[in-house]
Nucleic acid binder design. Structure first.
Length: 825
RNA sequence: GCGGGCGUGGCGGAACUGGCAGACGCGCUAGACUUAGGAUCUAGUGCCUAAUGGCAUGGGGGUUCAAAUCCCUUCGCCCGCACCA
């Protein structure tokens, strides 16, 4: 009988579907487990990355179920986004239709992999029943002053024709299409994620189950620094310029000040002077430079004196004011004090423009020609040329100078973050409309909650360039003000799709609720996500936004938890020939083909076996063949045994032979290894290899024993348990064989096996004999032997005696169960 | 520059708290069965050596009875951030 994987897989997928086998509801009597994989964009085709991601999640879900947990394992679609809109423009299909078609196809593909999802919880972010709550949550943020609109210079992707959040600009290019990003002055909606900067940073301590790398990346992104805001006066003006510095101890060394060319004060300071035109031209030139050139360390410092002077509030010194390319408007205050002696950037600037370099810190010990620096001295040291602070250690000086400034009212200590507010407006059609109405009298007014959702109109021109397509729908734009009932217009921008994915894990707990986003009793039962699995590419974007949302909702009493994801697993990429699989490289392998050729179980097994989960996986056709052969070997083994193994007996019968004991040992050893590898480390690769070893050992047991001497109880126990352990990994085959050998209930309702410590005790164990750390022999000793006994046995061995010869035995180390090391001289 | 990680056979990768380096799989070699096999089974497979034995976890040094594992140093690679004041 041949292993007909395709019939088997269809049979079980059909059965799971009709039985609704993976539907789960709250059950207070059971401990819950929330297994979640990042939901996909429904592109219409799964790729190997999906297969890997979702296979891992499926093993976790099925395994935890067998461990007795009430496992929620939902799936849905991150279905808003540009591809649908672009397809609509290119082929004239409606975005909703295109999206729903794709979802249909992908849902079938997921089912063909045998993934154990509770499809009753399926959601799609582009479904009005879902985005109603995206909009509702927007309004909650709005009411809590966490959503606001402001005009600012924002990132604009000319290819996607929309603005982007800072997080979505990668190396100066668009996160989606890599097109170089421009700056545009626009009025846009933001979420005040900066209000949560400190908590996003601090609460990372709670994320014990997160990879260090991801935490480090977020820390880096939030970029906290402690410093001082110091206010400088401007000569001949009542204007003030505030700078942020982490080095107030160097303030006596300030010899110039640099403002960002876009700094709002610049135009006032140069007004009607000879510097007005050059400053304007300088700014124009900077704006035209790409973000990369502008912010590269390699770019030469460049600046322009603007004819004005600032006053150092510490010593009243007059210092020239510049605008310069290396000062960024959106970090700190957009202005820096130049301390060339102690900051390398300022040093380069000062050298170029021949500005004084005044040392105010000298090294603690070694003598250094502090008057003739060849580069900035950035280390700590002793303060000099600093008035009453002279002689003070600069490290202490940071605090003392800051205190002094606070006393005099010229400065204050401040924590500064690199993190910017999250820009969520998008000038595109296929997203959740921002539920705001503009009224000439009342301003920006929230759409009343009972009017949600604000549904996407269909009478739009999608091809409109440069502004939101929603603006082209007369019926959508014109409305009445909810407050004064006068004529008003709707906001025409839609929300960043990352907003939709910032709370979907909460909605999964209560997916069809039409009165609330999610009921607290449900989220309280299921949240937090116990295991989240997805790609590292979301380390900052999605994972930080989701954390922010969860915290904001927690503060509003809408989320039971402050952190959404207890444990995070970031899986590696699937590569072929050393590169990420991509259509443009032509190195893709289609999951559908692999499933057709070898079946879903083989596909799953391969992606789990070929590499540990976090590491990149190199695709190997031969590796796939190997997994297929392994499943065939199991098929043959079990079908050949089906006639004489008995499901009623799963314990050894009568007296056990050495072979019986060995098989039992191997079985319980495998149970232990597979259990530990899956539950503690998610090392599916080594778990699978342990099952392979077990299968090998069952085969050789049959070989050695011959049919007449097989202990049916021992063999049955081994095969049954092997199938149970195979069930989360290759669920179709395991189900089929389980049923074939006459076992009752579904294999997935079985309890995960426990290993029997008794079976792991051997009568005799092999230990290694070393002389001076070198392997010389191996011997069997009784497993209960004491150190002294083992030492005695070993020293009496002829081979060992011969090897020791005339040398003196200095020391004998005995590690029971492992080795004996004889140290001789 | 800062942060995270990696380096083990021909390949993917094992090795728990320091205790037999190379589990498992792929590939390869030989053999068996077969009309045939790219199916299946058996045996072998880190390198050097005829063998006893020696050498091996990027390189060098150290700690230890014992190091892939701990420490120092050095080289190489990957990823993230980066004129952050």
């Amino acid at each position: 009988m041949k292993y007909q994987f395709s019939d088997i897989e269809k049979k079980w997928q059909g059965r799971w579907e009709t039985e609704n086998a993976f539907r789960r509801v709250e059950d207070p009597s059971k401990e819950k487990y929330y297994a979640l994989e990042m939901f996909p964009y429904p592109s219409g085709n799964i790729h190997m990355g999906h297969v890997r991601n979702y296979s891992m999640g499926d093993v976790v879900a099925r395994f935890m179920t067998m461990q007795g947990y009430n496992v929620i394992h939902p799936m849905g679609w991150d279905s808003f986004g540009l591809p649908a809109e672009n397809a609509a423009i290119a082929h004239g299909v409606r975005p909703d239709k295109w999206t729903n078609e794709n979802i249909k196809i992908m849902r079938e593909q997921f089912k063909s992999l045998g993934l154990s999802y509770d499809w009753d919880r399926e959601i799609a972010t582009s479904d009005p029943h879902y985005y109603k709550w995206t909009q509702w949550l927007f309004l909650q943020l709005f009411k809590n002053n966490l959503a606001y609109k402001k005009k600012s210079s924002v990132n604009w992707c000319p290819s996607c024709e929309t603005v982007l959040a800072n997080e979505q600009v990668v190396n100066g290019g668009c996160e989606r299409c890599s097109t170089e990003v421009d700056k545009k002055e626009l009025e846009q909606w933001f979420f005040k994620i900066t209000d949560y900067a400190e908590r996003l940073l601090e609460d990372m301590d709670m994320l014990k189950g997160w990879p260090e790398k991801v935490k480090a990346m977020q820390q880096n992104w939030i970029g906290r620094s402690y410093g001082t805001m110091t206010t400088f006066g401007v000569e001949g003006s009542d204007k003030k310029i505030t700078v942020f510095t982490t080095r107030p101890d160097t303030i006596y060394g300030v010899s110039f000040m640099v403002l960002a060319p876009e700094h709002p004060l610049v135009s006032e300071l140069v007004k009607d002077s000879e510097y007005e035109k050059p400053a304007y031209e300088f700014r124009k030139r900077m704006e035209h430079l790409s973000e990369i050139t502008r912010t590269s360390t390699e770019t030469e410092k460049e600046g322009l004196f603007i004819g004005r002077y600032a006053i150092n509030p510490m010593n009243g010194e007059k210092i020239p004011l510049f605008i310069g390319n290396y000062v960024l408007l959106d970090y700190g205050t957009g202005a820096v004090m130049g301390v060339p002696a102690h900051d390398q950037r300022d040093f380069e600037f000062a050298v170029k423009y021949d500005l004084p370099i005044v040392p105010v810190i000298k090294p603690r010990e070694e003598e250094m020609d502090i008057e003739n620096l060849s580069q900035a001295f950035e280390a700590e040291g002793i303060m000099i040329n600093s008035g009453s602070f002279d002689g003070m250690d600069s490290k202490e000086g940071i605090d003392r100078v800051a205190e002094y400034m606070e006393e005099k009212g010229i400065g204050e200590r401040k924590v500064n973050y690199r993190l910017r507010d999250w820009l969520i407006s998008r000038q595109r059609y296929w997203g959740a409309p921002i539920p705001i109405i503009y009224c000439d009298k009342c301003g920006a007014v929230a759409v009343p909650e009972e009017d949600l959702p604000v549904v996407l109109p269909e009478d739009v021109k999608l091809t409109t360039r440069g502004s939101s397509p929603l603006a082209t729908s007369e019926s959508f734009v014109h409305t009445t003000c909810p407050q004064c009932h006068g004529p008003a217009t709707r906001e025409v921008d839609t929300m960043d799709t990352f907003v939709c994915s910032s709370f979907y894990f909460l909605r999964f707990c209560d997916p069809v609720n039409s009165c609330n986003a999610f009921d607290m009793d449900k989220t309280e039962y299921w949240m937090p996500v116990d295991q989240y699995i997805g790609g590292i590419e979301h380390a900052i974007l999605h994972l930080m936004y989701a954390r922010f949302f969860t915290k904001a909702l927690y503060d509003m009493g809408l989320s039971p938890v402050e952190e959404p994801f207890e444990n995070l697993l970031t899986q590696g990429m699937v590569l072929k020939d050393g590169f990420k699989m991509s259509k443009s490289k032509g190195n893709t392998v289609s999951p559908e083909e692999i499933i057709a050729k070898y079946g879903a179980d083989t596909a799953r097994l391969f992606v789990l076996f070929a590499a540990p989960p976090e590491r990149d996986l190199e695709w190997s056709d031969q590796g796939v063949e190997g997994c297929f052969r392994f499943l065939n070997r199991i098929w043959r083994l079990v079908t050949e045994c089906r006639g004489f193994i008995n499901s009623d007996i799963s314990r050894p019968i009568g007296k056990m032979s050495e072979e019986d004991k060995e098989l039992r040992f191997n079985l319980h050893h495998a149970i232990k290894k597979v259990t530990v590898d899956i539950s503690e480390r998610f090392n599916f690769n080594t778990a699978i290899s342990a099952i392979m070893e077990l299968v090998n050992s069952i085969s050789s047991y049959r070989e050695k024993s011959g049919e007449d001497k097989v202990n049916i109880g021992v063999l049955t126990e081994a095969i049954n348990n092997m199938l149970v352990m195979l069930a989360p990994l290759a669920p179709h085959l395991a189900s089929e064989l389980w049923e074939m050998i006459g076992n009752g209930d579904s294999i997935h309702d079985q309890k995960w096996p426990h290993w029997d410590p008794e079976a792991l005790v051997k009568d005799e164990i092999e230990i290694v004999v070393q002389i001076n750390g070198k392997l010389r022999d191996r011997i069997f000793v009784p497993s209960g032997a004491s150190k002294e006994e083992i030492q005695g046995i070993v020293l009496e061995m002829d081979k060992i005696k011969g090897l020791i010869g005339e040398k003196n035995v200095v020391k004998v180390i005995v590690v029971p169960g492992r080795l004996v090391n004889i140290v001789v001289k």
